[in-house]
Protein backbone atom coordinates (compact mmCIF):
# COMPACT_ATOMS: atom_id res chain seq x y z
CA UNK A 1 0.00 0.00 0.00
CA UNK A 2 0.95 3.63 -0.42
CA UNK A 3 0.95 6.16 2.38
CA UNK A 4 2.74 9.44 1.76
CA UNK A 5 2.45 12.45 4.04
CA UNK A 6 3.44 15.93 2.89
CA UNK A 7 3.98 18.66 5.49
CA UNK A 8 2.51 21.24 3.13
CA UNK A 9 -0.18 20.57 0.57
CA UNK A 10 1.06 23.55 -1.44
CA UNK A 11 3.87 21.52 -3.08
CA UNK A 12 1.48 19.10 -4.76
CA UNK A 13 -1.01 21.87 -5.54
CA UNK A 14 1.71 23.85 -7.33
CA UNK A 15 3.02 20.83 -9.24
CA UNK A 16 -0.44 19.94 -10.55
CA UNK A 17 -1.25 23.59 -11.36
CA UNK A 18 2.03 23.80 -13.31
CA UNK A 19 1.49 20.74 -15.49
CA UNK A 20 -2.25 20.40 -15.97
CA UNK A 21 -2.39 22.55 -19.09
CA UNK A 22 0.26 20.37 -20.75
CA UNK A 23 -0.93 16.94 -19.70
CA UNK A 24 -4.51 15.81 -19.01
CA UNK A 25 -4.25 12.21 -17.82
CA UNK A 26 -1.14 10.61 -16.43
CA UNK A 27 0.24 7.90 -14.19
CA UNK A 28 1.82 8.78 -10.87
CA UNK A 29 4.26 5.89 -10.50
CA UNK A 30 4.83 5.10 -6.84
CA UNK A 31 7.58 2.86 -5.49
CA UNK A 32 9.91 2.85 -2.49
CA UNK A 33 12.02 5.68 -3.95
CA UNK A 34 9.10 8.09 -4.22
CA UNK A 35 6.44 9.28 -6.65
CA UNK A 36 7.36 9.90 -10.28
CA UNK A 37 5.49 11.15 -13.30
CA UNK A 38 6.53 11.28 -16.92
CA UNK A 39 4.25 12.39 -19.72
CA UNK A 40 4.37 14.01 -23.12
CA UNK A 41 2.04 16.83 -23.96
CA UNK A 42 -0.69 16.14 -26.54
CA UNK A 43 1.33 17.58 -29.40
CA UNK A 44 4.41 15.47 -28.49
CA UNK A 45 6.65 18.54 -28.55
CA UNK A 46 7.17 18.79 -24.78
CA UNK A 47 7.73 16.25 -21.99
CA UNK A 48 7.10 16.66 -18.28
CA UNK A 49 9.15 14.69 -15.76
CA UNK A 50 8.46 14.98 -12.04
CA UNK A 51 10.19 13.18 -9.20
CA UNK A 52 9.08 13.57 -5.61
CA UNK A 53 11.64 11.52 -3.69
CA UNK A 54 10.53 9.56 -0.65
CA UNK A 55 12.44 12.04 1.58
CA UNK A 56 10.02 14.76 0.47
CA UNK A 57 7.41 12.90 2.49
CA UNK A 58 7.39 12.05 6.16
CA UNK A 59 6.51 9.29 6.58
CA UNK A 60 6.63 7.57 3.19
CA UNK A 61 5.60 3.99 2.73
CA UNK A 62 5.14 2.14 -0.55
CA UNK A 63 5.51 -1.65 -0.42
CA UNK A 64 5.21 -2.36 -4.13
CA UNK A 65 5.03 -0.51 -7.44
CA UNK A 66 1.68 1.21 -7.85
CA UNK A 67 0.61 3.30 -10.85
CA UNK A 68 -2.03 5.86 -9.98
CA UNK A 69 -3.73 6.90 -13.24
CA UNK A 70 -5.20 10.31 -12.50
CA UNK A 71 -7.04 12.93 -14.52
CA UNK A 72 -5.21 16.12 -13.59
CA UNK A 73 -8.29 18.27 -13.90
CA UNK A 74 -9.99 16.11 -11.26
CA UNK A 75 -6.81 16.13 -9.15
CA UNK A 76 -6.68 19.92 -9.25
CA UNK A 77 -10.34 20.19 -8.22
CA UNK A 78 -9.68 18.09 -5.12
CA UNK A 79 -6.34 19.74 -4.31
CA UNK A 80 -8.06 23.13 -4.37
CA UNK A 81 -10.03 21.90 -1.35
CA UNK A 82 -6.77 21.84 0.63
CA UNK A 83 -5.32 24.92 2.30
CA UNK A 84 -1.70 25.57 1.32
CA UNK A 85 -0.49 24.90 4.86
CA UNK A 86 -2.56 21.75 5.36
CA UNK A 87 -0.78 18.47 5.95
CA UNK A 88 -1.62 16.25 2.98
CA UNK A 89 -1.58 12.45 3.06
CA UNK A 90 -1.97 10.30 -0.07
CA UNK A 91 -3.19 6.75 0.46
CA UNK A 92 -3.83 3.87 -1.93
CA UNK A 93 -4.18 0.09 -1.79
CA UNK A 94 -1.90 -2.21 -3.75
CA UNK A 95 -4.47 -2.59 -6.55
CA UNK A 96 -6.38 0.60 -6.11
CA UNK A 97 -9.59 1.87 -7.71
CA UNK A 98 -9.20 5.19 -5.93
CA UNK A 99 -6.52 7.33 -4.35
CA UNK A 100 -7.47 8.88 -1.02
CA UNK A 101 -6.36 12.33 0.06
CA UNK A 102 -6.54 13.52 3.63
CA UNK A 103 -6.02 17.20 4.45
CA UNK A 104 -5.32 18.12 8.05
CA UNK A 105 -5.16 21.61 9.39
CA UNK A 106 -2.22 22.06 11.72
CA UNK A 107 -3.99 24.85 13.58
CA UNK A 108 -7.58 23.65 13.61
CA UNK A 109 -9.01 20.26 14.40
CA UNK A 110 -10.23 19.83 10.86
CA UNK A 111 -9.72 16.70 8.81
CA UNK A 112 -10.97 16.57 5.20
CA UNK A 113 -11.06 13.30 3.27
CA UNK A 114 -11.46 12.94 -0.48
CA UNK A 115 -11.20 10.07 -2.96
CA UNK A 116 -10.36 10.38 -6.63
CA UNK A 117 -11.37 7.61 -9.01
CA UNK A 118 -8.39 6.19 -10.88
CA UNK A 119 -8.11 5.50 -14.60
CA UNK A 120 -6.25 2.86 -16.59
CA UNK A 121 -3.71 4.85 -18.56
CA UNK A 122 -1.57 3.07 -21.11
CA UNK A 123 1.41 5.35 -21.11
CA UNK A 124 4.52 4.97 -23.20
CA UNK A 125 7.65 4.95 -21.03
CA UNK A 126 10.55 6.81 -22.53
CA UNK A 127 14.16 6.73 -21.43
CA UNK A 128 15.67 10.12 -20.72
CA UNK A 129 19.36 9.94 -21.72
CA UNK A 130 22.06 11.43 -19.51
CA UNK A 131 23.18 14.46 -21.45
CA UNK A 132 26.22 16.71 -21.21
CA UNK A 133 24.72 20.07 -22.10
CA UNK A 134 26.75 22.72 -23.91
CA UNK A 135 25.21 25.49 -21.79
CA UNK A 136 23.62 25.48 -18.34
CA UNK A 137 22.03 28.70 -17.16
CA UNK A 138 20.75 29.14 -13.62
CA UNK A 139 18.66 32.24 -13.06
CA UNK A 140 15.78 33.53 -10.91
CA UNK A 141 12.59 31.72 -11.91
CA UNK A 142 10.61 34.97 -11.74
CA UNK A 143 13.01 36.63 -14.15
CA UNK A 144 12.67 33.80 -16.66
CA UNK A 145 8.88 33.97 -16.32
CA UNK A 146 8.88 37.72 -16.96
CA UNK A 147 11.12 37.37 -20.03
CA UNK A 148 8.92 34.66 -21.53
CA UNK A 149 5.73 36.61 -20.84
CA UNK A 150 7.16 39.88 -22.21
CA UNK A 151 8.50 38.31 -25.39
CA UNK A 152 5.34 36.25 -25.99
CA UNK A 153 3.50 39.56 -26.49
CA UNK A 154 5.72 40.20 -29.51
CA UNK A 155 6.40 36.82 -31.03
CA UNK A 156 5.59 33.11 -31.03
CA UNK A 157 9.25 32.14 -30.73
CA UNK A 158 12.34 33.08 -28.80
CA UNK A 159 15.97 32.42 -29.65
CA UNK A 160 18.08 31.62 -26.60
CA UNK A 161 21.69 32.45 -27.33
CA UNK A 162 24.23 31.40 -24.73
CA UNK A 163 27.78 32.61 -24.99
CA UNK A 164 30.61 33.18 -22.54
CA UNK A 165 29.30 35.05 -19.47
CA UNK A 166 26.04 36.09 -21.16
CA UNK A 167 22.72 34.72 -22.31
CA UNK A 168 20.43 36.55 -24.70
CA UNK A 169 16.72 36.02 -25.31
CA UNK A 170 15.79 37.38 -28.73
CA UNK A 171 12.47 37.56 -30.53
CA UNK A 172 11.34 38.95 -33.87
CA UNK A 173 7.66 39.74 -34.27
CA UNK A 174 5.25 41.50 -36.61
CA UNK A 175 5.14 44.66 -34.48
CA UNK A 176 8.85 44.73 -33.73
CA UNK A 177 11.73 42.94 -32.08
CA UNK A 178 12.92 42.36 -28.51
CA UNK A 179 16.14 41.23 -26.87
CA UNK A 180 17.04 40.73 -23.23
CA UNK A 181 20.61 40.00 -22.17
CA UNK A 182 21.67 38.63 -18.82
CA UNK A 183 25.23 38.40 -17.62
CA UNK A 184 26.80 36.28 -14.92
CA UNK A 185 25.76 37.87 -11.66
CA UNK A 186 26.69 36.83 -8.16
CA UNK A 187 25.62 38.57 -4.98
CA UNK A 188 26.15 37.42 -1.42
CA UNK A 189 23.43 39.77 -0.18
CA UNK A 190 20.81 38.73 -2.71
CA UNK A 191 21.72 35.21 -3.87
CA UNK A 192 18.18 34.76 -5.14
CA UNK A 193 19.06 37.17 -7.97
CA UNK A 194 22.15 35.24 -9.07
CA UNK A 195 22.64 34.35 -12.72
CA UNK A 196 25.16 31.64 -13.51
CA UNK A 197 26.14 30.64 -17.03
CA UNK A 198 28.24 27.51 -17.51
CA UNK A 199 29.34 26.97 -21.06
CA UNK A 200 31.40 24.41 -22.93
CA UNK A 201 30.49 25.86 -26.33
CA UNK A 202 28.18 28.65 -27.54
CA UNK A 203 24.61 27.56 -28.30
CA UNK A 204 21.74 29.31 -30.07
CA UNK A 205 18.36 27.59 -30.32
CA UNK A 206 14.81 28.72 -31.01
CA UNK A 207 11.80 27.63 -28.97
CA UNK A 208 8.06 28.15 -28.94
CA UNK A 209 7.16 30.75 -26.30
CA UNK A 210 3.72 29.23 -25.79
CA UNK A 211 5.35 26.20 -24.14
CA UNK A 212 7.92 28.20 -22.17
CA UNK A 213 5.17 30.42 -20.73
CA UNK A 214 3.39 27.24 -19.73
CA UNK A 215 6.49 25.80 -18.00
CA UNK A 216 6.86 29.05 -16.05
CA UNK A 217 3.67 28.21 -14.17
CA UNK A 218 6.06 26.19 -12.00
CA UNK A 219 7.88 29.35 -10.88
CA UNK A 220 6.19 29.26 -7.47
CA UNK A 221 7.91 25.95 -6.71
CA UNK A 222 11.46 27.31 -6.71
CA UNK A 223 13.21 30.66 -6.62
CA UNK A 224 15.56 29.62 -9.39
CA UNK A 225 15.30 27.76 -12.66
CA UNK A 226 17.94 25.90 -14.63
CA UNK A 227 18.00 25.97 -18.44
CA UNK A 228 20.17 23.33 -20.15
CA UNK A 229 20.86 23.63 -23.86
CA UNK A 230 22.75 21.71 -26.50
CA UNK A 231 22.46 22.01 -30.23
CA UNK A 232 19.57 20.04 -31.76
CA UNK A 233 18.44 18.38 -28.51
CA UNK A 234 15.46 19.35 -26.37
CA UNK A 235 15.84 22.22 -23.92
CA UNK A 236 15.67 21.14 -20.29
CA UNK A 237 13.92 23.54 -17.92
CA UNK A 238 14.37 22.36 -14.34
CA UNK A 239 12.81 23.51 -11.08
CA UNK A 240 14.64 21.92 -8.16
CA UNK A 241 12.60 21.05 -5.10
CA UNK A 242 13.67 20.07 -1.60
CA UNK A 243 15.19 16.59 -0.95
CA UNK A 244 16.56 16.27 -4.53
CA UNK A 245 13.04 16.24 -5.93
CA UNK A 246 12.37 18.09 -9.17
CA UNK A 247 9.96 19.17 -11.85
CA UNK A 248 11.53 19.12 -15.33
CA UNK A 249 10.22 20.14 -18.69
CA UNK A 250 11.78 19.23 -22.03
CA UNK A 251 10.99 21.15 -25.19
CA UNK A 252 12.11 20.31 -28.72
CA UNK A 253 13.80 23.19 -30.52
CA UNK A 254 12.46 24.72 -33.71
CA UNK A 255 15.00 24.18 -36.47
CA UNK A 256 13.96 25.54 -39.84
CA UNK A 257 10.33 24.60 -39.08
Amino acid sequence: MLEARLEQASILKKVVDAIKDLVQDCNFDCNDSGIALQAMDNSHVALVSMMLKSDTFSPFRCDRNIALGINLNSFQKVLRCAQNEDILTLKADDSPDVVSLVFESSEQDRISEYDIKLMDIDQEHLGIPDTEYAATITMPSGEFQRICRDLSALSESVAIEAEKNAVKFVCNGDIGNGAISLRNHSSVEKPEQNVNIELSEPVALTFSLKYLVNFCKASGLSGSVKLCLSNEVPLLVEYELASNSYLRFYLAPKIGD
Binding site: H44, A46, G127, I128, A252, P253, D257
Partner: peptide, 14 residues
Protein backbone atom coordinates in the same frame (compact mmCIF):
# COMPACT_ATOMS: atom_id res chain seq x y z
CA UNK B 1 6.20 17.61 -37.22
CA UNK B 2 9.97 18.04 -37.15
CA UNK B 3 9.74 19.14 -33.50
CA UNK B 4 7.85 15.97 -32.57
CA UNK B 5 10.46 13.83 -34.29
CA UNK B 6 13.24 15.65 -32.45
CA UNK B 7 11.62 15.14 -29.06
CA UNK B 8 10.73 11.49 -29.65
CA UNK B 9 14.12 10.77 -31.17
CA UNK B 10 15.85 12.13 -28.07
CA UNK B 11 13.88 9.98 -25.67
CA UNK B 12 14.42 6.40 -26.58
CA UNK B 13 11.43 4.16 -25.92
CA UNK B 14 12.32 1.69 -23.18
Amino acid sequence: SAQQARLEGFFKAV
